[in-house]
Simulated assay, not measured.
Amino acid sequence: MKLLGQKSVSTILSYLFLVLFIIFLFHFIYQSLGFGIGYYNWTTSHHLFSETFYVNDEIDYASYEKGKYVFFRFKYPFSDQQMLTGFFTLNRFIFHTFQSIFFCLFFFYGYKTFGDLSQKELFNETIIKHLKTFTIINVLYAPLYFLIWIFIFRTGLEGGMLMTSFTFLFLGIILHFITVFFKRGFQLQSENDLTI
């Protein structure tokens, strides 16, 4: 099976990224709904979907002084499977929202890029635009992820945090080189078309 062009590996990868984008988009919407309903229930003492979107000052997996912390536990719809759990704070909301938005954008632009690689004309302005955006998303994620951990959660340097930041920064740098390669290929192709 060929790597590029129509009915190729790039086409399959494009569909895979599309499916992952849809899954992460639904996850983000459901998670945002959970934080919204949880906040509403906590501040108004209502019990709207309280089994699915649990928010309380006590939780069964840890013992803390009652009233000192607020916990949350969100379950997937129609199941007892946990989706998210932790302290119910603004910092936690910001972190999970940041993560979800990043992964939605990551898989969306992965889908767009591999979709462009499935076209007949490989070097075109559309793929260059999508690769640039994909590069920016990855390069920006690394320092933002790092800063969120340092300033919002006020933690020290951890190996996992540094590894994650480095991985996406490295991916962004590789994508930048690929973008330059495609830009150069598009220029050569345009010059070739003009000479013909």
Rank of each mutant, 00 (worst) to 15 (best):
Ser118His: 03
Thr155Arg: 13
His27Asn: 11
Val9His: 11
Thr44Ala: 08
Lys7Thr: 10
Leu194Ile: 08
Gly67Ala: 06
Leu33Asp: 02
His47Trp: 07
Leu33Ile: 08
Leu105Asn: 02
Tyr145Thr: 05
Gly110Leu: 06
Thr167Trp: 12
Thr135Gly: 10
Ile148Met: 07
Leu3Trp: 06
His130Met: 14
Thr85Ser: 14
Ser79Thr: 05
Ser45Asn: 14
His47Glu: 12
Gly172Lys: 01
Thr133Ile: 15
Phe95Lys: 05
Leu18Ile: 09
Asp116Phe: 13
Thr43Trp: 03
Ile174Cys: 13
Ser63Gln: 03
Ile152Asn: 07
Cys104Ile: 04
Ile137Phe: 08
Asn91Met: 13
Ile23Gly: 04
Phe146Lys: 00
Phe181Arg: 10
Asp60Ala: 06
Gly5Pro: 00
Leu131Tyr: 05
Leu84Ile: 07
Ile22Glu: 07
Leu140Lys: 06
Gln99Asp: 13
Lys68Arg: 00
Tyr61Cys: 09
Ile12Leu: 15
Glu158Ala: 14
Phe78Ser: 14
Asn124Lys: 03
Gly86Asp: 00
Arg184Ile: 12
His47Asp: 11
Thr52His: 09
Phe26Met: 06
Phe71Asp: 02
Gln187Asn: 12
Phe106His: 02
Met83Glu: 06
Tyr141Gly: 04
Asn41Pro: 05
Ile22Met: 10
Ser79Ala: 07
Gly5Ile: 01
Phe166His: 03
Val55Gln: 02
Phe21Thr: 01
Ile173Arg: 05
Thr52Phe: 12
Asn91Leu: 12
Ser50Tyr: 04
